[in-house]
């Protein structure tokens, strides 16, 4: 089976305290540490496990710049057969649809039976997998938390409300977005990364892929992030000193304001 995994490099939320830069138009990126997006790493592990069961190849691709090569090396060290960096100035500022368009052209260059993405990036929107599938006209399933191969089809389970699982049968080729926890990603040590330090990683640009430059990049984006901000909230514990009832009201209000009511 030929498997493609689309992975991204993101600031790791478990190792960073995200704050705004002085200008307030971006997050402070100077002291951030980056890593492969958590869900994408599960997707790579899943791809490797499928390959090890049924044979084939795992290709990992990322759209980005030179810095993003780092995660491709990590995935190579994990055991991916090849890695591709998709990079072009024309791509910068793309919205989700732009990104999916680039990936669609990349996929059409090759031949993949199965395409995996992570469910969502820490700074993302859980959208690229579904868009890519629609552009390719492949079937799609999101939030996948187990995959079994049964005579040319996949039996996948999706995570739905209350921890329940929805079981679907899906034809190949297809696109699946992988939920964290589907497997236990293997550890990649320093040594593994050093061993692939000089593995070739081809870089493909817009013209290599035949990307319609009018459909990607900032100009084509119909969804634009205009700024970053931190909602004004007091720093340090604000002690509530009302009556028990008042405090409960206040807590409820705060939970709701933080988007915590489901």
């Amino acid at each position: 089976m030929e498997i493609l995994v689309c992975a991204r490099r993101v600031p790791d939320t478990s190792e960073n305290e995200i704050s705004l830069n002085a200008a307030g138009n971006d997050i402070e990126r100077d002291e951030l540490v980056y890593s492969v997006n958590e869900a994408d790493n599960y997707a790579v592990e899943e791809a490797l496990q499928i390959r090890d069961r049924v044979g084939g190849n795992v290709t990992v691709a990322t759209i980005g710049g030179e810095d993003d090569e780092e995660i491709l090396r990590r995935e190579l060290a994990m055991g991916a057969n090849q890695a591709v960096l998709i990079s072009d100035d024309a791509f910068s500022g793309s919205d989700g649809k732009g990104v999916a368009t680039i990936l669609k052209d990349f996929v059409r260059k090759g031949r993949y039976d199965l395409i995996l993405t992570g469910v969502q990036a820490d700074d993302g929107a859980a959208q690229v997998g579904g868009m890519l599938a629609a552009m390719l006209d492949y079937p799609f399933a999101s939030l996948v938390n187990s995959i079994a191969l049964e005579d040319g089809k996949l039996k996948v389970s999706r995570e739905i409300e209350g921890g329940n699982r929805e079981i679907n049968e899906i034809d190949l080729p297809c696109v699946l977005s992988i939920q964290t926890g589907i497997n236990e990603p293997r550890y990649v040590g320093m040594r593994g990364i050093r061993q692939v330090a000089s593995a070739p990683i081809p870089t493909l640009g817009a013209s290599d892929l035949g990307v319609d430059q009018g459909a990607v990049g900032e100009a084509a984006a119909r969804v634009k992030r205009v700024d970053y901000f931190v909602p004004a909230l007091s720093k340090g514990a604000e002690m509530l000193d009302g009556s028990r009832e008042e405090n409960a009201d206040k807590v409820l209000e705060l939970v709701a304001a933080k988007g915590g009511l489901k």
Partner: peptide, 16 residues
């Protein structure tokens, strides 16, 4: 209005 980085920062988004 959206959030990024697990809600650590918020953003304004314009959608055509």
């Amino acid at each position: 209005g959206r959030q990024e980085f697990g809600g650590q920062v918020s953003t304004h988004v314009h959608c055509d």
